[in-house]
Simulated assay, not measured.
Amino acid sequence: MVTGERWDEQDEGVLRLPSGRLVRGRGLRRPLDAGAPVPSYGVYLLGHRPPEFPWTSRWLSWPDFRLPKDRAEARETLREAWERAAEERVEIACGGGRGRTGTALACLAVLDGVPPGEAVAYVRERYDRRAVETPWQHRYVRRFGERL
């Protein structure tokens, strides 16, 4: 586990939350560049179990263009990722790195204090302008804040 080491804010896909936590979003279809820093903890949002990674990871069953299969597990997983991001290199990733990843990053922003109605815009401005792809993903982020 890589604790105490943080992402470089200038690296591709790294999002700074208001608290200063840094989280990397990524699309798994784009392999990591040689020598790129690796996470200490990864959350993988896929409709099928991903391959094993050489770092601690958690799979969240989340089909493409949809929402997590188990909302309670998603909340727990994202809260753990947010907590770990205070001291560890946390990566959130799906296939393309936009819809599911953007939705999860927006939920982390909500956990970090961004108002739920502003979290999608926050992530689009600072991570990817096309993050959070569907109306139901937008609603999920807004409702995520209702259960804090």
Rank of each mutant, 00 (worst) to 15 (best):
S40H: 09
L45G: 04
Y44D: 05
V114Y: 10
P63Y: 11
R71L: 15
L15E: 01
L111K: 13
V110D: 04
E83C: 02
A106M: 09
P54C: 11
W82E: 01
D33I: 00
A86S: 14
R26W: 15
E83F: 01
A74D: 11
Y44V: 08
R100D: 03
L78F: 15
V114L: 12
E87H: 14
R21F: 01
P39S: 07
L32T: 00
E91A: 13
A106S: 15
G96M: 06
C94N: 03
R49M: 09
P51G: 13
L60G: 03
R29D: 08
G27I: 02
Y44L: 15
G97L: 02
S19F: 13
A119V: 10
L22Q: 08
W82G: 02
V38I: 13
P50S: 08
L105E: 04
W62F: 15
G20Q: 07
P116G: 07
P63A: 09
S57G: 11
G97S: 07
V14T: 03
R29K: 13
W55E: 07
E73P: 02
V38M: 14
G20N: 06
A36Y: 05
E52R: 14
G47Y: 04
G27V: 05
G102R: 02
R66T: 08
L46G: 04
P37C: 02
L105Y: 05
P63L: 05
L22W: 09
Y41A: 02
A104F: 01
H48K: 13
D70W: 07
P51Y: 05
R49H: 13
G97R: 05
A36T: 04
G35F: 06
A119P: 13
G113P: 08
G113W: 11
P18R: 12
P39W: 04
L60Y: 02
R66E: 12
F65R: 15
W55V: 11
R30E: 13
R26Q: 11
R26C: 02
P50E: 06
R100S: 08
F53M: 14
R100I: 03
E88H: 08
V114N: 09
R89N: 10
E87M: 04
W55P: 00
G13D: 01
H48C: 00
W59N: 05
A81L: 07
R66K: 13
L45V: 06
G25I: 00
L32F: 15
R98W: 10
E80M: 08
V23L: 04
K69Y: 01
G99Y: 04
S19C: 09
R29S: 10
D64R: 10
R16C: 07
A86F: 03
A106G: 07
G113H: 12
W82P: 01
G47T: 01
E118M: 12
P18W: 09
R98T: 11
W62N: 03
Y41D: 00
V120K: 09
W82V: 03
G102F: 01
V23M: 08
G25Y: 00
